[in-house]
Design a binder for these strands. Structure first.
Lengths: 193, 193
DNA sequence: GTAATTACGTACTGATCGGTATGTAATTTA
DNA sequence: TAAATTACATACCGATCAGTACGTAATTAC
């Protein structure tokens, strides 16, 4: 190691994540990135490879922090039904709040890149699988405690909730009336009987 | 009208729809379009305005034909439960088939463009609302015939099924194990009790 | 203090982007 | 047949794209 980095690699990556999250891969230019990351092009290329490498690093940062967020939200609530209810309702409230929201970076990437790039097909799939495992663990906890109907198939229900989460996140991009998503969440949560 | 068009406007639009469907708006270049549409740039600009105008025309063509397809699928089955089951299972089978599938053009556009362009926010929202109306009509039919539990809220359930459809379509972009979507469809269809 | 190494900023590359000017061909109207 | 109008193909526009060459600054190793 000769001359040390002058910029904070994590902060720069975080800035890149925000730009990609907001605009997607294709619509984000290197100029967008340098201005928001506060560094020059050669620093990006020497640190992250190329544009796609930077995107991948940003997406990995997102998925790991998102997984931690979801795990925390669901595990820190004694009631499983209440945990899922709060999780879904909180997600909707954030999306309909003042601050602009860009949905889920992983879902955005799944739609834009997965069909054309196997690396992102795998990366985004693995995140969804991980979410379904977190969901299933939570449902299992409710089965063990007796809170949930023992006839429930934890795995199938977890997978269904992941798919509902995706559907809700995506449809909110078109900003439907709030009752649309509120009704659906109520309906979906009846599966957690 | 002086000199008549030498190309078939509908066929050209159909070709444009396929390219945009496959690659999205940003990743599709004018060169991609001219080569697949079989016409020159000035013909595109004189007929459809600009790139975004052509995209909008292509998306409108897609949504109207997709709505007709869904309506037909659901209305031409005497059993409502069977109609939805066949609809969802057929969608999955197509996506996992040999031919490449690009998901739903409207969902792709909702993810890529709706947050940055109000015109597409409205256009994609209206299509989802229309699908939910078709779904609701079908559920109402099942309620009238006595096939479905009269305790069902047709509107909420229709909205839920639209969200499930979106979630299924999107997650299949990452090509999960087929059991993932099969399980979820079974679970979702239990709401049609 | 000198050589080696790494980082930085500037300025550039060829390619491609979306969009258009222009000249010519074809058709209608009169 | 002449004028007007529309469509076509070519060839171009300035801007921007992702990516890099290169010279200089800073740090470490010896």
């Amino acid at each position: 190691m000769a001359r040390p980095r002058e910029f904070d690699e994590e902060k720069a990556l975080d800035a890149a994540m925000q730009v990609f999250w907001e605009k997607g891969f294709e619509a984000t230019s290197l100029s967008d990135l340098t201005s928001r990351m506060g560094i020059q092009r050669p620093s990006i290329y020497s640190t992250f490879g190329d544009k796609k490498g930077l995107f991948e690093a940003a997406l990995r940062k997102y998925t790991s922090s998102h997984a931690a967020y979801v795990r925390n939200k669901l595990h820190n609530n004694p009631s499983v039904k209440e945990a899922f209810r709060a999780f879904f309702e909180n997600m909707v409230a954030e999306e309909y709040g003042q601050n602009p929201n860009w949905g889920c970076f992983c879902i955005n990437s799944m739609v834009e890149l997965s069909p054309h790039d196997e690396k992102f097909e795998i990366l985004t799939r693995e995140h969804q699988m991980y979410l379904s495992v977190i969901f299933q663990e939570t449902i299992d906890r409710g089965l063990r405690s007796g809170e949930l109907d023992p006839a429930i198939n934890a795995k199938s229900l977890a997978q269904t909730l992941v798919i509902s989460l995706i559907g809700l996140t995506v449809i909110m991009k078109s900003r439907p009336e709030r009752s649309f998503v509120d009704n659906s969440i109520k309906e979906i949560l009846t599966l957690l009987r």
